[in-house]
Nucleic acid binder design. Structure first.
Lengths: 225, 225
DNA sequence: ATTATCTATAGATCTATAGATAATGC
DNA sequence: ATTATCTATAGATCTATAGATAATGC
């Protein structure tokens, strides 16, 4: 589905193939530390090539990052699927979420992968490039977890994506990965019975004075020594 | 604490004072839709002024955004404090969190405010400008909620900040604000007894093959039609 | 002969400044 | 006279391209 070369798929020269891999490796390293902010020039430099070569293989920066994002997304889902078929899926999923939080704490690219995937899955605006055929697999995962009673039944795939993305942001912001993972994990479970917080998509949530409170500012005017 | 003018605090001319407010109003509007990506040129234009004037009042873009971020952060904390002194704090806090999620779904600036505040509070690197004397108030809030048994006792201020920030990211990514808020809310509660997931900051979380799994990519090489 | 690669640079996008000009207020 | 404001532009930062040069493989 992701064609990178011209349609008739000419087999790529030996050196070109080597360089292509060097580019991807270099890009992936930079993606880990810089995420989408990686620079094409740096990719080229790290791969020991000129920028022109990078652009020959990937016509735009986006084409390159789509490759990186999709690969990571695929790897993550595969791991989740493996967890679900374990003898103790609840434990395995817990391990999966925790290790994700930990990884995302030091891998900007992974964090942004979740973000792009989420946004794409939620059908939001421009970045549809990152939408993949992974949706079906995610859907199966969520449903499976719900049927096992591990996850609240009103949680959509988009919400799961969004929560993973938020978890990444939370550890980036300085939260303790282990605690953050636990909060998400517990929060996703079926509401048991106690508080039994209802959550019908829209409606309440405006008990305490709605939008207005957070207006512009600066009425106190000038500085005070 | 946040001096914007030269030290001796000369009282600002009438037109200057008017323009300053126009700048802040314009900037706040743009901050809502664009967050930190707002452009100084647009701020000026929207305020009906030249860029030079904007820069006269705020020597850097950062100086301007610090103002916006701090004001929003203050407003949010004030609301949270109000919620905590209600007759039914649990309900009020719930309303607070839900309305935050809802607001953040359409206010990029508010979302980024949490992010900057979190990162700053977690003592992370460069953006210390955004660190404020709000920390004490946040600390009091969290402790208060913990003493009331509403929030798990091992949750630090940094974790709370981080979770709010993650919540914002999650709604940005397309999650249902109401559901996301609920997940966070439930997840922050004391673990009751059931699953009783321990969470000692470091340690487990690596049950399922640690870092390695998410290596570079591209062994499958060229494209497939 | 064809396919890849390189270097240098165009072009787009922003922040921030300089120097000339205009508005306030004693 | 002093303080503010304006316009035009320098400077930094990136993506992406053009045109000349080098490496493959029939």
């Amino acid at each position: 589905m992701v064609l990178t070369q011209s349609s008739p798929t000419r087999p790529l020269r030996a050196d070109a193939r080597r360089n292509r891999e060097a580019i991807i490796t270099a890009a992936d390293d930079l993606f880990r530390t810089q995420g989408m902010a990686l620079q094409m020039d740096e990719v080229a430099q790290r791969a020991g090539l000129g920028v022109g070569t990078v652009y020959r293989h990937f016509p735009t920066k986006e084409a390159l990052t789509v490759e990186l994002v999709n690969h990571r997304a695929e790897a993550v889902i595969t791991r989740a699927e493996q967890a679900m078929v374990t003898r103790a899926p609840a434990e395995a999923i817990r391990g999966f979420i925790h290790s994700m939080a930990k990884l995302m704490a030091s891998d900007v690219g992974l964090r942004e992968t979740f973000q792009l995937q989420s946004v794409a899955d939620a059908q939001i605006d421009e970045c549809a490039y990152y939408r993949q055929d992974l949706h079906a697999r995610k859907f199966a995962l969520v449903r499976q977890a719900q049927e096992a009673g591990m996850v609240r039944p009103d949680l959509a795939v988009e919400d799961f994506d969004a929560l993973m993305c938020g978890m990444g942001q939370a550890v980036l912001a300085g939260g303790n990965p282990s605690l953050i993972a636990d909060v998400i994990l517990v929060g996703m479970r079926v509401p048991s019975a106690e508080g039994a917080a209802d959550c019908t998509a829209e409606g309440q949530a405006a008990e305490l004075g709605s939008e207005s409170e957070l207006a512009p500012c600066a009425e106190d005017g000038d500085a005070s020594a």
